[in-house]
């Protein structure tokens, strides 16, 4: 049983096909790096997987709950850190949402400011709160859209550590990025999107790590 099965997915914006006949199967416990240049369709595909957008054609099957860390932080400025995470804990029907929120705030280094409003936080603190929100319910499938973009050093360290813990627990991770080095170091599998089509999918190899441009040169159209 795959953690995620995508079959024949098309997405049109007007007459423009943002995704064309995308098919992808991801086994449980994989870390998939969804690579491609700007406009290749990475974010569109992730939004469809997350249920934020409907495919024009095709089907998606997901086993288990999903967590998403997208371009926006997805937390409420007028609520405190603990209120934000408790809210999402309740929405995910966690047994003890407040306790879980407290634990998560400690993990992302915001335990001491848990009663502070999100709008009063620095950019880095808000990013760590967003990481806490995405990981709060221990999702079976984690979707990360350009996760390292615009993060400060501490937020990157927190995110990398939490991704590693998710991998150790056999969770499935799909991350879209054009930061090749970071993505390839974390990934067990790669998929290369080009103009809305998957032109390569398979295991991440040592060759990709040694020469990060190899993938684009071999399968891309430069």
């Amino acid at each position: 049983m795959n953690a995620l099965e995508i079959a024949g997915v098309w997405k049109y914006y007007g007459d423009f096909p943002a995704l064309r006949e995308v098919g992808l199967n991801i086994t449980p416990g994989s870390t998939m790096a969804l690579l491609g240049r700007n406009g290749a369709g990475k974010t569109t595909l992730l939004r469809i997987i997350a249920g934020l957008s409907r495919p024009s054609r095709g089907s998606i099957k997901i086993q288990g709950s999903i967590g998403i860390l997208g371009h926006g932080i997805g937390v409420y400025d007028e609520l405190s850190a603990i209120e934000n995470l408790t809210l999402f804990g309740r929405l995910h029907d966690l047994p003890e949402p407040r306790k879980r929120a407290e634990e998560m705030l400690e993990r992302v280094g915001l335990g001491r400011v848990r009663d502070g409003l999100a709008r009063e936080f620095s950019r880095g603190m808000r990013q760590r709160l967003a990481v806490g929100r995405a990981f709060l319910h221990d999702p079976e499938v984690l979707l990360l859209d350009e996760p390292f973009t615009a993060l400060d050093d501490r937020a990157i360290a927190v995110l990398q550590s939490m991704i590693q813990q998710m991998r150790d627990r056999g969770r499935t991770i799909i991350m879209s990025t054009h930061q090749l080095r970071e993505a390839l170091e974390l990934a067990s599998h790669v998929a290369l999107l080009q103009r809305g089509q998957i032109v390569h999918t398979g295991e991440r190899t040592q060759q990709m790590l040694d020469d990060t441009g190899w993938l684009y040169r071999t399968y891309g159209d430069n």
Partner: peptide, 17 residues
């Protein structure tokens, strides 16, 4: 409109609500 700020609506829709 209060859901647009910080893409909170996406976080809500992606949740099981």
């Amino acid at each position: 409109a209060r859901e647009v700020q910080n893409d909170c609506l996406d976080a809500l829709i992606a949740s099981p609500v």
